[in-house]
Write a protein that binds this DNA or RNA. Structure first.
Lengths: 206, 206
DNA sequence: ATAATTTTGTAGCGCACGCTCCAAAATCAT
DNA sequence: ATGATTTTGGAGCGTGCGCTACAAAATTAT
């Protein structure tokens, strides 16, 4: 049935994600993509269509490996408040340990390419919606388990947390340090605390 | 002393701001800029240097007219909490009433061009620092006036509010509606409220 | 072996990019 | 009026862009 592909398609996609992540959609050329993916230009078009289609594929790959994987892993613990806290903590850690300060491909794309491409805009908005749904699910669970104040509005707070994550991602890309990023997150996380009773002898961890 | 300029430099800069704001730095061509500014390509280079210099000038213009003007106006009231609330409310209103959903030029630039241009990155970070300083100043004032809880950490909360603004700007660019944007802001604004005393009855005396 | 099918590398198409050269046009001082 | 100086428009430079045509190379089915 013809000649076999000489390259690993998944591995090549991962390289494409790296380039789009680092430089953005417009600023990444097809020639640069092909070189980093270790294939020729013709093979790229043959395997993935055109640059835009490759970008959409790369976005999906990023969302799967970077966002959904994290959500699934954190949610497995069954501790909703810890899942939320750990999500923010991981975002901050990953943002700081990346020497290139790439931020989040979805956030970058939301500002860069989504506004000029309706279809990609919808894709990005859907991914962000999944993140908001993660927050909402866990807030709901925490509320019914009595782990957060009964006044907590899971929908509202989920939106707030999504906004906080986006803000952290933007600030991280500007080179903010840990103190700045944690200052963004901490007031939001404090909303998860149960109101303290009077006379705390020794505060236990929630 | 030579021929006079046939165009209004300030007006032309405003047009340049509009184009960079709508399409971003890379995606806006010098030809398009010149056309929208109503001048020839040669005049553009003669008056502003090159594309990058024009962009930096446009950024400064935007920061002056869009951010500093708002900060100064809101701060004149002398009511720090109202200034903060009004800032967020205006950001949301402006974001929603813009049919092009351009968001904020500074935020867009922070993700798009700043990471690949250290000098512009510093400029953008400085502008964001001015916004954070606005929040911090007013939180400090509110605290010494007893308008917010004495536990409030003005530095931390200023960082949080900056992050919230950035998050709102990102979400606005993805086409979020008023309910979503206000959900991001509301929990942050609630942190400005004084904690209510436990009032046993309606005639609460404090 | 042969034919059919698919992948690969090269070369290059047409186009838009940032930017510049240059001469005509317009304004100043003298 | 004259000469100096600046702005203006048009043409065009070199480069890199997304993408494709084409034929050699590699594989399967017969």
């Amino acid at each position: 049935m013809g000649r076999l592909k000489a390259f690993d398609e998944d591995r090549a996609i991962d390289r494409a994600v790296d380039r789009f992540w680092l430089r953005g959609y417009e600023a990444t050329s097809v020639r640069d993509l092909a070189e980093r993916m270790g294939i020729g230009g013709t093979s790229l078009y043959n395997a993935y269509g055109d640059k835009r289609a490759l970008f959409i594929t790369a976005l999906a790959r990023y969302a799967d490996r970077s966002m959904r994987e994290r959500i699934a892993r954190l949610e497995k613990s069954g501790r909703p408040k810890q899942a939320i806290r750990a999500f923010l903590a991981e975002i901050i850690d990953r943002s700081l340990e990346d020497p290139d300060r790439k931020g989040c491909l979805l956030v970058n794309s939301a500002l860069d390419v989504a506004p000029h491409d309706a279809a990609i805009g919808r894709v990005v908005a859907d991914y962000l919606g999944e993140l908001r749904a993660f927050f909402r699910r866990n807030l709901e669970a925490a509320r019914t388990a009595g782990l957060v104040s009964r006044q907590t509005d899971p929908d509202e707070l989920a939106g707030h947390l999504l906004g906080v994550v986006l803000g952290i991602r933007v600030l991280a890309r500007t080179g903010a340090d840990r103190a700045q990023l944690e200052a963004v997150a901490r007031p939001a996380l404090r909303l998860l605390d149960l109101p303290r009773r009077r006379a705390p002898a020794r505060s236990a961890r929630s």
